[in-house]
Design a binder for these strands. Structure first.
Lengths: 339, 339
DNA sequence: TGCTAGAATGGAAGCGGTTCCAATGCCATC
DNA sequence: GATGGCATTGGAACCGCTTCCATTCTAGCA
C-alpha cells in the first residue's frame, strides 16, 4: 500500500541502512547521498511506520497521561498544555481518565509496565509509598503535575503559599470570620488529593500570623464539585454567626459558594467575600477573585521535563522539582468587611 | 524484559501459533490446551505487544480524533464520550487539536493516510467536496460528529429545528424584536462551521411562521468566543430600538451576551431575554435558558459507529446518519416580554 | 482393517523498521 | 607498492506478533 523503507532504498539506489541513517540524522552519510535519499522520500511521500519503529527500537514511542476527571476545567487546561508540547515530538499519547478510586489504584499500579508507554505524566494524583517503589525500580520515567512524591520529578505550585495569599487578602480587607471550604483533607479511601490540605496550612498560618483564632467549625469539606460546595456553603451561611468571607479551595467550589449565597439572598461582596483558587476560564466571567496558577504551563512544562528524561542516555537522572508562580487576582467577589 | 509470546509457548509446552490462536479467540484450539495457555499467560502476567500486533496485522490499531479548540467546553464533553467508549476497545487514540485554518486543512487532507490511524472521528468540521473525494477513495473509515458531508457517516442533531425551538420559545413569551448572535454564517477562509447557519434557518422559519418580519440588522456575527460575543451584544443593546431577546448560537456566546447586559445595566430577564445553545456544564449554574444537545453521547455514539465499521469485514458500508434528540431547557434568563 | 475428512497443532515467513558487522574505496604513510 | 585507517555503504538478523501451510492425530465409515 504505502511506501516502505525498502522502496525508498531501491528507488534511490542505496542500501536499507543508508535510508535508515538518513531518517535518523546519522552523520555517517555523505551529503550527496543524503540529498538523493531525501528527494526520493519527498517524491514517494514516504513516512516511516510508527509500529515498525517501535517494535524495532523496543520502545512504545508513546507517553501516557493519567488524570482524574477529564471534564474538570482545571484538568482540561493542563491537558491542553500537554497536547501542545507533545504534538510534533514523535511520541503518541494515550490518556487514562480516572473517575473512581479503583481505577486510580489500577492505573498507578500499572504505571511501571513497559507495555503501555515509555513515560508517564500523572496529574493531581499522589502515589503512595508502596506505589512509588515499583515505579522507581522499573526506572519508568514519570513526571508528576500538581503532585509530589519522594524520588519523582514534579512540577507544581506552592499550595501552602497560595492558601496564605488568599487568606491574607481577606484579612487585609478586615475579615476575621473566614471560612475555608475544601475537599476532605485526608481520606485514605479516596483519591488523596493533597492540595486542599496544603492550602489549609496556608490558611491557618495567615490566621495565626494575624492573631485570629482558628475556629474548627469554619472549616467545612465535602466531595469536589459545585453542587456539593453549594450545600456546604448553605450550611455555613445559615449559621447564626456566619462567616463574612469564604475561601474555597477551587474556583469550581467557589462557584458553588456563589450559588449558595444567591439561594439565601446573601449579597456578594457586600455581605460576603468569596475567593477561589485556579483562575479557570469562567472565573474572569464571574468576576471571581482568585489565586491564579498556571494550568496550561504546568502541562506544557511537565511534558518538557518528561521528554528531557526520555531523550537522555542516562538510566538514572536525579528528580527535578519545579515550582510555578502563583498570584492573587482581585476581582469583584471580595470587598472590605462591613461589620 | 517483559514476557513474549514465545515465553508463553515454551512454558505451556505448545507452539507459537497456538498461543496466538488463544489470544485471538480462534475456535481451532481444544479447550484443554486453551486453559493451559491461559493459565501460563496469567502466571507470567503476559501482555501482547501493541506494536508487534500492529505491524503484523498491517493496521495501526489506533483511532484518530480531529477536533477544533479542545478547550471549548462543548468539545471537551464530546471528547469525554469518545474516551469512555474507546477505552478497553483495544484501540489507541491520538488527538489532533485544530486551532487555525491551516491546521484544519492539513488535518483534513491527511485523514486518508493510513500511517496515522485505522479510523478517524471528526468533530464539528465539515470536509469540503475536494477533501471528501480522497477519503472515500481511500476507504478510510470516518465518522463525523456534529457535522455532515455527503457519503460519510455522521451523528449530529437537528440544528435548524434547534434554532426553531429557541426562537419559538422567545416568540411564545411575546417577543417580536429578537436578535440572533452567531459565528459567521459563511466564511470560506474560516473553519466552515455549519451549525450557526443551520440554526439561523430555524430562526428565520420561526419568525416567518409567526409573521414577524426578519430584520437583517438583528443578525450579528463574529468569531466564536465570549469576548467577541460581548462586544457584538454591546452594540446590539446600545441601539435605539434594541432587541428584547437575544438568541445566541452557543452557550459560550450567550455568556458574552449576559456580560454585555451587565456592562450596560440591562436587567436579565426583565429587560432582556437570553437563550443559548448546547447546555454546557456552566449553563445550569448561570440559570441560562438553552437548547440542550447530548454532547457526551455524541462522542460515545460516534465511537460505536466507528468501531462497527472497523469490525466489519465489508470494505464498503453504506453511510449511516444518526440524529440525537435536543430539547428546550427553560431556566431564568428568559421571561415574558415587558413591552 | 484401511482410508479419509476434519480437528488440532507446530513453526516458517513476513510485517517495516534499526543496528551491527562486513565490505568497499580512497588516501596518507612508510 | 604495500599497509593501515577512515569514511561510507550494503544487507542480514532481529524486534514480537499473525497467518498460512504442513503435519499429526482422531474418529467415522466402507
Amino acid at each position: 500500500m504505502s511506501a516502505t523503507i525498502r522502496d525508498v532504498a531501491r528507488k534511490a539506489g542505496v542500501g536499507l541502512g543508508t535510508v535508515s541513517r538518513v531518517l535518523n540524522d546519522s552523520p555517517l552519510v555523505s551529503s550527496a547521498t543524503r540529498q538523493r535519499v531525501l528527494n526520493v522520500i519527498a517524491e514517494l511521500n514516504y513516512m516511516p511506520s510508527h509500529a515498525a519503529r517501535s517494535l524495532s527500537l523496543g520502545k512504545t514511542l508513546t507517553v501516557a497521561t493519567i488524570a482524574p476527571f477529564f471534564t474538570r476545567p482545571s484538568v482540561v487546561e493542563r491537558l491542553c498544555g500537554i497536547e501542545a508540547n507533545l504534538t510534533g515530538s514523535g511520541y503518541h499519547q494515550i490518556f487514562f481518565n480516572v473517575e473512581n478510586v479503583e481505577r486510580r489504584n489500577e492505573c498507578l499500579r500499572d504505571v511501571s509496565r513497559r507495555e503501555y508507554a515509555d513515560g508517564v505524566l500523572i496529574i493531581s494524583l499522589t502515589p503512595h509509598a508502596d506505589e512509588i517503589a515499583p515505579i522507581l525500580k522499573s526506572h519508568m520515567p514519570v513526571v508528576l503535575i500538581d503532585a509530589e512524591a519522594s524520588g519523582l520529578t514534579d512540577v507544581r505550585v506552592d499550595n501552602p503559599y497560595g492558601g496564605y495569599l488568599a487568606t491574607q487578602h481577606l484579612i487585609d480587607l478586615g475579615h476575621q470570620n473566614i471560612a475555608y471550604l475544601s475537599d476532605p483533607l485526608q481520606d485514605p479511601l479516596y483519591f488523596d488529593f493533597t492540595s486542599s490540605r496544603d492550602r489549609y496550612q496556608g490558611y491557618c498560618k495567615a490566621l495565626n500570623d494575624a492573631d485570629i483564632p482558628i475556629r474548627p467549625d469554619n472549616h467545612v469539606w465535602g466531595l469536589h464539585g459545585r453542587y456539593e460546595a453549594r450545600c456546604l456553603a448553605r450550611n455555613l451561611l445559615s449559621r447564626y454567626d456566619r462567616p463574612t468571607a469564604i475561601f474555597a479551595a477551587s474556583d469550581t467550589q467557589a462557584m458553588g459558594v456563589l450559588e449558595a449565597a444567591r439561594d439565601l439572598s446573601v449579597r456578594v461582596p457586600d455581605e460576603l467575600s468569596v475567593i477561589g483558587f485556579d483562575d479557570i476560564d469562567v472565573a474572569e466571567y464571574l468576576g471571581l477573585t482568585t489565586i491564579r496558577q498556571p494550568l496550561f504551563e504546568s502541562g506544557a512544562r511537565g511534558v518538557e521535563l518528561l521528554l528531557e528524561i526520555l531523550g537522555s542516555e542516562e538510566s538514572y537522572l536525579p528528580p527535578k522539582h519545579e515550582m510555578l508562580p502563583i498570584e492573587l487576582v482581585v476581582r469583584s467577589t471580595t470587598a472590605p468587611c462591613q461589620e
